[in-house]
Design a protein around this nucleic acid. Structure first.
Lengths: 101, 101
DNA sequence: CCCACATATGAATACTTGCTCATATATTCA
DNA sequence: TGAATATATGAGCAAGTATTCATATGTGGG
């Protein structure tokens, strides 16, 4: 009794890694781009006024984290949010960030 | 119609910053230490087998982010989770991180 | 006041990470 | 096949960050 639960390092690292993906401005903006419709890489780059390469690098991170999925159609890769869980989390972050503004 | 919402940089940065606080293993472990009871700095340092200074630095970040609050009692500073929102988010991360293990 | 203990903080360092540049890969069309 | 377009990727760099070390601040007891 009174013992404190010590979260092991592997699990706490996994938790931190999960949150870390949302912890970058560019990745957040990309995810918001995908809220309504799927988008191809260059569309996102144009909308965010960033280099195609930068977007592609971040999309890989989002894909590895299973937050987005990619669909190839000809020369284009269309990215979309993996599931509605992602938009729920995004909107949680938005509400928190704008609650005292 | 068909227009994509572009999240502005200030707001997306604020969202990213909020998630970023949870994006570090040590901070996650500290928060889990505080799940049940308030703790003083050295107790946490001993439990996590880390230097007092490292814990103190991270506690400042958690405090600035309003995830923990501090209560001074004599020579000791007792830290505790700010509200139940924090533990809800923590457990969300835990569930996600352990769902395919 | 002096000492011991608890915490906080600034500087330095090692590590991480997001971006750019160059280039590779993939796909379509002539 | 060759050119044009779209995306992916590796190397390098610059900025950010977590930790350590040394030290400062705060607190209580003798």
């Amino acid at each position: 009794m009174g013992e404190t639960f010590i979260m092991d390092e592997v699990t706490s690292q996994a938790i931190a890694d999960a949150f870390k993906v949302f912890g970058d401005k560019t990745r957040v903006r990309i995810l918001f781009c995908l809220l309504e419709n799927e988008q191809c890489v260059d569309d996102i780059a144009v909308q965010l006024n960033m280099e195609q390469s930068a977007i592609s690098h971040q999309l890989r991170i989002l894909k590895n984290a299973r937050l987005v999925s990619a669909r190839r159609e000809g020369r284009f890769s269309y990215y979309s949010l993996m599931d509605e869980h992602v938009s729920v989390i995004l909107n949680m972050g938005l509400e928190h960030a704008t609650e005292d503004m």
